[in-house]
Amino acid sequence: MPEKTTTMPENSDGLPRRFLPGFLLLSLERDGTSYGYELYETVRSLGLSVDLAAVYRALRTMQQRELVTSEWVASLAGPDRRLYSLTDTGRRGARAAATELAAVRDGLVDALEYFRAPDISRT
């Protein structure tokens, strides 16, 4: 009887969701202003597997923490839309997020190099 193969759990979620606030801040820093669904599409395109509700909740929390501000923008073609932009605190948050992401990247690069390198002590 063949032995069962232990498989690692599939991770189809892409990048960790904890990156969502940082991605939102950096998206707003890059684009200046964005609507909610635009931000959702941006973070999805960058590999975050989050739903629209998560983006809404993150934006609400970030607004309560005064990282982002928003205004309702009237549209002749359709309903008003909420337009988001960074506050000064949010801009500092975006810089902090960029630093954190760079640290994560460097840590992952170091880890991959470690795993790829042969362990000469065992040879």
């Binding site: 609507y35 809404y56 909740r57 309903p79």
Partner: peptide
Amino acid sequence: VMYWLRGEGFGDVVDPGLIERFLG
């Protein structure tokens, strides 16, 4: 939430499940 969804083009109809997802 309803105004926000409506503005983003998702209409203006919700159910309790959606409210749970969006508002916790």
